[in-house]
């Protein structure tokens, strides 16, 4: 679905926020609670987040313990997912690899959404030259291909010996720097659809301050589409992080991440497919979980597509 369509459909469901919004919101929550996809994706996300915070809950094996003699072993009772080229336990690597992906996904989403929402609201609400300026700056960043820009950024700030969180933060910064324009555009058009409504006009006529109107009328009624897109984007950012690692310029060994593991495994695809399969599976499941969650939320708020 295009972003514009998401804005339009999300708005068609809350056309009357004064009288029926509450019941519509309640309806949506009920629809969400009835949707098995929502529960499946929420459960999966919960597990992955737990994995990221507390990996030792899932495995006692040290992911950095190399048993070279058993390198490339197929899955067996001792190493459930087998071992990789260094003799690391793949199951433990996959569990510990969740952290990088979740961190990148969550923080990039946080940054892009905050920047996007703030700029989008400002542009749409104040209009005039503010809008023109923000829109042109947004256009500039939007025109840079995301992947190429991120590669360039990571190359401009290479991270050979930086600590873990610094490297993760660099990836977050690289994707955020180029990821916010899409959300700014989305938020701008979402707010543009809210502004002409009577309740906003009424608040203006009553002399409410811009900040108050934005906080109590504009934000609650225009946030829907951006939340849906942000959820789906979270999955996309995780995939992008893995792509950067795959290209050898994102996270790099000794950092444990799914992208790094996949990069290591691709050369040996023929002889050791299990090395590729498990990190890919976990990566895909995480991306899938966020896409499904976003879909479920959108469906709940947009009965038309049900």
């Amino acid at each position: 679905m295009t972003e514009q369509a998401i804005v339009e459909t999300a708005h068609s469901s809350d056309a009357n926020p004064v009288g029926e919004a509450r019941s519509l919101g309640a309806d949506a929550r009920r629809a969400l609670a009835r949707n098995p996809l929502f529960w499946i994706s929420a459960t999966m996300i919960f597990i992955f987040v737990l994995m990221a915070i507390w990996p030792s809950l899932f495995t006692n094996t040290d992911p950095t313990e190399a048993v070279l003699s058993q390198a490339r072993e197929r899955p067996n009772s001792e190493a459930w997912f087998g071992r990789d080229i260094q003799g690391y336990d793949i199951y433990a690597r996959v569990i510990y690899g969740a952290r990088a992906s979740i961190l990148v996904g969550v923080f990039t989403t946080l940054f892009t959404t905050t920047i996007g929402a703030a700029l989008g609201i400002t542009a749409a609400y104040f209009g005039g030259w503010t809008d023109s300026l923000i829109s042109r700056v947004t256009d500039i960043f939007f025109a840079i291909p995301l992947l190429l820009g991120a590669i360039l950024f990571m190359s401009a700030f290479p991270s050979s010996n930086d600590p873990y969180f610094v490297v993760v933060f660099k990836v977050v910064a690289a994707i955020s720097l180029l990821g916010w324009p899409a959300l700014t555009r989305l938020m701008r058009s979402s707010v543009m659809q809210v502004l002409p409504n009577d309740y906003v006009q009424a608040a203006r006529a009553l002399g409410a301050s811009p900040w108050r109107i934005i906080r109590s009328h504009v934000i609650p009624n225009s946030l829907g589409p951006i939340i849906v897109v942000a959820t789906i984007n979270l999955g996309a950012y995780i995939a992008l992080e893995a792509t950067l690692s795959f290209l050898g310029i994102g996270l790099q060994p000794p950092v444990i991440s799914w992208g790094v593991s996949i990069n290591d495994a691709i050369v040996g695809l023929r002889t050791t497919p299990h090395m590729l399969f498990f990190p890919s599976l976990f990566l895909s499941l995480t991306v899938l979980a966020f896409i499904m969650l976003g879909d479920a939320v959108r469906d709940a708020y947009d009965p038309k597509t049900r």
């Binding site: 995939a239 893995a242 691709i266 895909s284």
Partner: peptide
């Protein structure tokens, strides 16, 4: 949904191996 959630470099490598090699 499966295609969307599998990163492109995995799809590429796997298709290259199976259909190509």
């Amino acid at each position: 949904l499966v295609v969307i959630s599998i990163p492109i470099f995995v799809i590429g490598a796997v298709l290259q191996y199976f259909l190509g090699v």
